[in-house]
Amino acid sequence: MIEKTDVIIIGAGPVGLFAIFELGLLNISCHVIDNLDKPGGQCAELYPEKPIYDIPSRVSITGQELTDDLLAQAKPFSPVYHFNQQVEKIVKLETNEWLVETSLNKKLKAKCIVIAAGAGSFVPRKIPIENLDYLEDKNIMYAVRNKSILENKEILIVGGGDSALDWTNELSKIANVTLMHRRKEFRAAPDSVSKMLELEKDKKINFLLGQIDSIEDLKNGKIKVTVKNNDEKNNFEVDYLLPFFGLKMELGPIANWDLNLDENLIKVDAEKFETSVPSIFAIGDINTYPGKLKLILSGFHEAALMAQQCFKYCFPDKKNVFRYTTSSKDLHKKLNI
């Protein structure tokens, strides 16, 4: 089934979230797609606990608080969120609408696309050893999509954060798991840490101090991982290596959409924030124009101006009357006030 909406927003970072609100004020409904499993973009993924000091009127607000408030502000407009999927393809239909396809094969149709993709999708950071690509999904997995293939296998999990610990705890039930980290301290939810330590005490998992040194394909379905701890080296033959070294941002499929780019940024005008392709907009960290500053507040401004132009595409026959949220009865109704 193809779902239909007015505008598809790619990216649920702070700027994408505020765009829901600005579009909503103009009666424009949205679906929002993000590769992450949660909203907030960089604010929620990279610095949820760190305070931001330059959001107008907010003397200090953490990345997560800002995300929560933006979600609350957008809520009256009932946006539909689609997480854990990357937008891969966009196609212009004969009806002049856009068809958007995600990595989970979801298809959405809309009149406009708003790209609020930051520095691109968050993707797992890979091991910086050359010529490993072909082992990906075969022996090296940066994300677990199908747990059942890991059943009864020898697994080496590397890392000290939430993903590494959660998967260690989870996979200990079905596989032979070793967790390796460079120190015996973990930056993860205290619950997961104590659970892991308990599993180690009960010999349900092994814990190993060390780091990856090299990886060799044994050509029998297994790999040999050489690990080092200071000057000491050891070899492990395993079926699967699961490295969890956090996420990084990569432009990804956006590069193939025939938009005018400048390095990895999308060129827009500074009046409507429209790209070189009409009815596709780019706002927030992903765009560039003379004088661009990569700040959340600039992204908010861009969202407001973008919405004005979107209105023309969504309601070509209607007149857009400028109103303040303070005084407009009509806007109050929309905001459930």
């Binding site: 950071r125 091991i127 910086p128 890392g159 000290g160 954060g161 980290h181 460079r182 120190r183 301290e185 930056r187 780091q211 990856i212 070294f245 956090g246």
Partner: peptide, 11 residues
């Protein structure tokens, strides 16, 4: 910094 280094390689 120590925690962040957990995401680096060959520390």
């Amino acid at each position: 910094e120590e925690s962040m280094l957990d995401q680096a390689f060959d520390v």
